[in-house]
């Protein structure tokens, strides 16, 4: 399900009301033109999974924190902030998680490193 960054909090609140109270994973994909942040949520009681996709521009790469709803989001957000250079707004703990490369270009972006294929084949 594609949603706007501005509607993320309300979409997650709505999901929580419907029983999507388990966060499976937060991750991101670098689509060259923009970044895509993904929230995998689950309704354990009804055994249903849902994927929320939020597109954000490179020049303004931030998402609001969802730690208010999911305690599991804490580490995932820190990992994503470090690996994709996505700023997470509204967090208390801002310490990076894995390499603690502060100020270095985000390593999982396609522009980082040598020989990283920056194309995506056409369908």
């Amino acid at each position: 399900m594609k949603i706007d960054r501005a509607n993320l909090a309300s979409a997650i609140e709505e999901g929580m009301a419907q029983g999507f109270d388990y966060l499976v994973k937060i991750t991101a994909v670098d689509n060259i033109a923009s970044l895509q942040v993904l929230y995998f949520v689950r309704n354990i009681a009804q055994n249903k999974d849902e994927l929320l996709e939020v597109d954000i521009p490179y020049s303004d790469a931030w998402v609001p924190t969802v730690t208010k709803y999911y305690a599991a989001a804490d580490w995932y957000e820190r990992e994503m902030a470090e690996m994709f250079g996505v700023d997470i707004r509204g967090r208390h703990v801002r310490r990076l998680l894995l390499e603690k490369w502060d100020g270095v270009e985000a390593p999982l972006r396609k522009s980082f490193g040598w020989g990283s294929p920056t194309y995506k084949s056409e369908e």
């Binding site: 499976v24 994973k25 991750t27 994909v29 670098d30 993904l38 995998f40 294929p117 995506k120 084949s121």
Partner: peptide, 20 residues
């Protein structure tokens, strides 16, 4: 526990592989 892979698959190689 549950391991999950989210893969954006290019014809030749994984364009992005996210491992839970």
């Amino acid at each position: 526990g549950e391991g999950m892979m989210y893969m954006v698959a290019d014809p030749q190689r994984p364009y992005r592989l996210s491992i839970r």
